[in-house]
Amino acid sequence: MTKEEFGFQDEELLASVIADLIGDVRHVAVGNASPIPATAALLARERGRLEGLSRPHVSLLQSRKHNFWTDGARELFDCAGQGRIDVFFLSGGQIDGHGNVNLVSIGDYDQPKARFPGSFGSSYLYYVVPKVILFRTEHSRRTLVPKVDFISAPGVSPPNVHRTGGPVALVTNRCLFSFDAARGRFALASVHPGHSIEEVVEHTGFEFDRPADVPPTPAPSPETLRLMREVVAPQLAEVYPQFTARVFPLGRPRESGDP
């Protein structure tokens, strides 16, 4: 997909999808290395502001400006443990059909074939944040697998394990899946413009439910694109300067020397 054909970029579509999934909540937190969810969270905040709401609060873990923490880096986790964070985002080197995420390694843990950065806060936040939105911009059989090699955090837990949160959806560059926690299984919810159901099936390594009618993912509205490019992008640049320069080249504050 190119910006010329559709009038928006992949990243803008995914951020728009994620912003719609966030819904009307009080507090959205975004962890490390999550520029698209950060775009979505800031977009949700701008939409709230336009409606005169003082929500959602947005906490970008690595930001100086876009969080309100005064008790250090642990405050995010303490907040989540109490149920004060409504939405969080996770990705994974591998994600499987039961919603398990792997942020650690491929192959045997002691003799891995590939190593990712590590589990970050996933092994905790996945259990205690009610709405965890999974995102993976590479939708392939390499990333969406039948069974992860390492469980950084499980998609579902036995009934006696304290679990107030978990996955609700998986957003990829090809489609949106919803997650049914009772069945521990994904269902295809919509397919992005320029992609097809057949293509989703071909590139997904796990089984998922296919409703008879799978709609196309709605394109971001002109107002959504305007908010992202003009209002969100300058805020995003503090934490994700490289991403912002690439995706929103016109959105960053002008600097001397710019054409």
């Binding site: 880096a73 642990r74 986790f77 970050f120 806060g121 092994s123 259990y127 205690v128 469980i151 950084s152």
Partner: peptide, 29 residues
């Protein structure tokens, strides 16, 4: 996982031998 490190250092801060933490159960971590 991030909160486990924060919590384990808080245990030392309080002079207690351990700290409980939610999550983690069922993970390979």
């Amino acid at each position: 996982t991030c909160p486990a490190l924060h919590a384990a250092l808080q245990a030392s801060e309080k002079g207690v031998p351990f700290m409980p933490l939610r999550g983690l159960i069922g993970s390979d971590v």
